[in-house]
Write a protein that binds this DNA or RNA. Sequence first.
DNA 1: AATGTTTATCGTCGATATACGATAGGCGAC
DNA 2: GTCGCCTATCGTATATCGACGATAAACATT
Lengths: 112, 112
Amino acid sequence: MAANRTSKKTACCSDTNPCPLPPDQSAEQLATLAWAIAHPARVRIVRLLISRNTCVCGEIVDEMPLAQSTVSQHLKILKESGLVQGEVDGPRVCYCINPENLSALKALVGSL
Amino acid sequence: MAANRTSKKTACCSDTNPCPLPPDQSAEQLATLAWAIAHPARVRIVRLLISRNTCVCGEIVDEMPLAQSTVSQHLKILKESGLVQGEVDGPRVCYCINPENLSALKALVGSL
DNA sequence: AATGTTTATCGTCGATATACGATAGGCGAC
DNA sequence: GTCGCCTATCGTATATCGACGATAAACATT
């Protein structure tokens, strides 16, 4: 599912016009971001990334009772949602929170 | 990597009980609540229920481009998550937000 | 009692999430 | 170079979602 990110509403406001937020579009954005944390394993991953302010690499697997491939899948979902970004750093990949989208999630939930 | 057990423990509880709420539980609670709004249709339903402060009955179906059975399914999911509660009122069922769990969702997301 | 309205449930379909093991690829260390 | 570590991907199996139509259940009205 994972709400398609190719939603073409665009009928609400023009490019230059502020138009706070088209209801449908913000609904899909919120759904996408909520979907990212709609699994306990991903919640734990997100919290881990936030607590360790620096990027985290393989430690994530050690903290979770899941296979490495499964954790990789969750990380992929988190990356696709935009809540997490990963950067290659030599032999390992370091993940960190995307603060912009985390703020967006907080704002969208907070304004419910 | 199980070397840094000491710094992993955050003070999740401080009262009489020896931590009856392990991090997993709050992760599951957040995942459950996030799952409730992890679909655009459910986001719209939740927003509709919040905007109309009174309970809403069949109007939800009219506002959504979905079949009645599908909307009923989404409402069932929202009820199971605890974010929405429904009360029988004569021949119809009236839904309203469960403010307690909505606050819990906001708090959990906000404290990320 | 019969009817109409409203909501829930059933059955079904396709699509996708979740989990795992096995495998492939990249990079540092020896 | 070869080896070992870390991560991604593939393939697979199971379970669930999301959607619909059709039907059942509960209630007010007639």
